[in-house]
């Protein structure tokens, strides 16, 4: 029978010992934006339930989203959504077996962050023009 007693095992080096690389930062951001969107879904549920409840409840949620704080949250939500979406597309590219080379993955990492910031700003410009 194998020795099953638990003892302190050596751990592999973790995040804090590595020099941050763009690909690594994008990987971490993918997880962080995913977690933020997870809790951000509460806002979607709140908005829909308020709209279903009636004009007064809707006015409350609309007022919150229209405030500076609300807009700041929505802006962050937009960026998290766009960033996580682009990160997901990056993973789809990797799923096909492409984009693993040094240049390709650095390019994909840059495209993710530049794209997410650009698309977020663009969406808000469109939003402000329409609204």
């Amino acid at each position: 029978m194998a020795d099953v007693r638990t003892k302190a095992r050596p751990l592999s080096p973790h995040l804090q010992v590595f020099r941050p690389l763009l690909t690594m930062v994008m990987s971490i951001l993918h997880r962080i934006t995913g977690a933020a969107l997870y809790f951000g879904t509460l806002l979607l549920a709140w908005w829909l339930v308020a709209a279903a409840s009636g004009p007064e409840a809707y006015a409350t949620v609309a007022g919150f989203f229209d405030s500076i704080f609300g807009r700041l949250i929505l802006f962050g939500y937009t960026w998290a959504l766009v960033h996580h979406t682009l990160g997901g597309i990056r993973h789809f590219i990797w799923d096909t077996g492409h984009g693993y080379g040094v240049e390709a993955r650095n390019m994909l990492a840059s495209a993710t962050i530049i794209g997410s910031v650009a698309i977020t700003i663009l969406l808000w410009i469109v939003g402000l023009l329409v609204g």
Partner: peptide, 12 residues
């Protein structure tokens, strides 16, 4: 969260 959102949209 899913149930609340689904309830909201269905009620509407």
């Amino acid at each position: 969260v899913g149930l609340a959102a689904v309830f909201g949209i269905l009620k509407i």
